[in-house]
């Protein structure tokens, strides 16, 4: 498989509905937003899919890879290659981690043909959660929630690496009582970029502040996104603005698409049960 040429719409063929999938939760979800992962698992199981959670999973290696430490990335990737012995699809609740697995694992493993071949075999059956729900499972459950307006942020990796920017929209469009409010500069990055947000806080802050302003200007009641990195970046910037302005209520609450879909279609998101 060759790496994505950004902007080209690489059409992907999807498998038929499998009996089981591997769930690759990602390190960010594991430690910071576990509800999103749990709700994604519930969604999949409710569609009749057996979900296998390999307990030895850690991280896709993206932080080291994008920071320019390819050897360290390879060490971590190598430790993930044994997680998926069966031939089931691998579902990832993040466009950026899915993009890393799908396009960059083979690059970090390029020095070792055997390793590279194993990475490629995994890349080929790795799907971002939203595309899996739409294209493989044909997710189409009745919206049981009250009328609401939400706004959607699609991560740059989902948009440009996984080519799934229309998938989130389509899933939301299938919910009868949900109106999607588009924001200005929708295709523009939220300014997270992993270590970029730590290394260049001035520019990252400028970008996320603009994103928060655009999202708020829609008047939507909440943000929905399928990437937790972007979600934490956007909502915690908004929370800081609330704090600085002395607002007690979150002016831009956000949640993962999985949580939102589950609640709207009659499920109980695990965060709601507390």
């Amino acid at each position: 498989m060759s790496s994505p040429s950004h902007g080209a719409n690489t059409p992907r063929t999807y498998p038929s509905r499998p009996q089981a999938v591997y769930f690759y939760g990602t390190c960010l979800v594991d430690m910071f937003v576990p509800e999103a992962g749990m709700d994604a698992i519930t969604l999949l199981e409710r569609e009749g899919i057996r979900v296998i959670f390999p307990d030895n999973q850690t991280c896709c290696g993206q932080p080291a890879f994008t920071s320019g430490f390819p050897d360290e990335a390879r060490r971590v990737v190598e430790a993930q290659l044994d997680l998926f012995p069966g031939n089931h699809p691998i579902v990832v609740p993040s466009g950026s981690c899915a993009g890393m697995i799908r396009w960059h694992w083979e690059k970090v493993c390029a020095g070792d043909p055997a390793l590279k071949a194993r990475a490629e075999a995994i890349s080929a059956r790795t799907y971002e959660l939203a595309e899996f729900l739409l294209h493989v499972l044909g997710f189409n459950r009745k919206d049981e929630g009250p009328a609401t307006t939400v706004t959607l942020h699609t991560s740059c990796s989902a948009r440009r690496e996984m080519g799934t920017h229309l998938v989130g929209r389509e899933l939301l469009a299938r919910l009868g009582n949900v109106t999607l409010a588009h924001h200005d500069h929708e295709s523009e990055c939220c300014g997270f970029g992993g270590t970029f947000s730590l290394k260049h806080p001035d520019v990252s802050t400028a970008m996320v502040s603009d994103k928060v302003a655009s999202l708020k200007a829609t008047g939507a009641s909440q943000l929905v996104t399928a990437d937790c990195g972007c979600m934490l970046n956007i909502t915690q910037r908004a929370a800081r603005e609330d704090q600085d302005a002395g607002r007690a209520c979150a002016s831009l609450p956000g949640e993962h698409l999985a949580t939102f879909l589950l609640r709207r279609t009659g499920g109980s998101p695990c965060g709601d049960q507390k």
């Binding site: 910071f32 959670f53 730590l198 929370a239």
Partner: peptide, 26 residues
């Protein structure tokens, strides 16, 4: 204080339980 992150955002805080804990419990 989390380097550039908290320059403009509220701090990151791990959840009380990990995804793997939730998976195991269920």
């Amino acid at each position: 204080q989390q380097s550039g992150w908290t320059a403009a955002r509220t701090p990151l805080k791990p959840a009380s339980r990990r995804l793997r804990d939730m998976v195991k419990d269920r």
